[in-house]
Amino acid sequence: MSKFKKKKSGELPAISTASLPDIVFMLLFFFMVATVMRENTLMIENRLPVANQVEKLDKKNLVMYIYAGKPSSRYSSSAGTQARIQLNDKFANIEDIAPFVLAERAAKREEEIPFLITALKVDGETNMGLVGDIKKELREVQALKINYTTRIGDASDNLK
């Protein structure tokens, strides 16, 4: 019978794309796992300086972040163009640092407190005056372990 009539042979069979979703899903899962969502929305410019003698900052839960830099263009009309400090999601003044550190400390378990590190994420174009003020405040509240967060690379990239 001609019920099972064969197709004409000689045509190339189409490449099956059935496994394409699997491959894409695999990639998707990789990126979903590898993605670190930013905890803070940056309201400042934050082009970190470059250094090559760096140490990795692990134990993310023991790090508190202090950002500083010029307000980004969206906020420059309300916050001015001078370099500002950002704590959590808002602009802050020098005197807000001490309460911020104490609040961060209070949220941690007691045995973790000595290992807390303050990461200073400061824009490369900031003046040392602001950084010095921040450091002075940190000394006052005994938050002595700090980390100048940098990008990894050759230091000569800073001199442009």
């Binding site: 993605t35 003698q53 760096v54 140490e55 940190l138 000394r139 002595l144 700090i146 980390n147 100048y148």
Partner: peptide, 22 residues
């Protein structure tokens, strides 16, 4: 996939560790 590719910022978490004087 494209959404995650764009939003991914592999954060630079390295820097120079220092200890401030008391």
């Amino acid at each position: 996939l494209i959404f995650f590719l764009i939003t991914t910022t592999i954060q630079s978490e390295a820097g120079i560790n220092r200890k401030l004087p008391p």
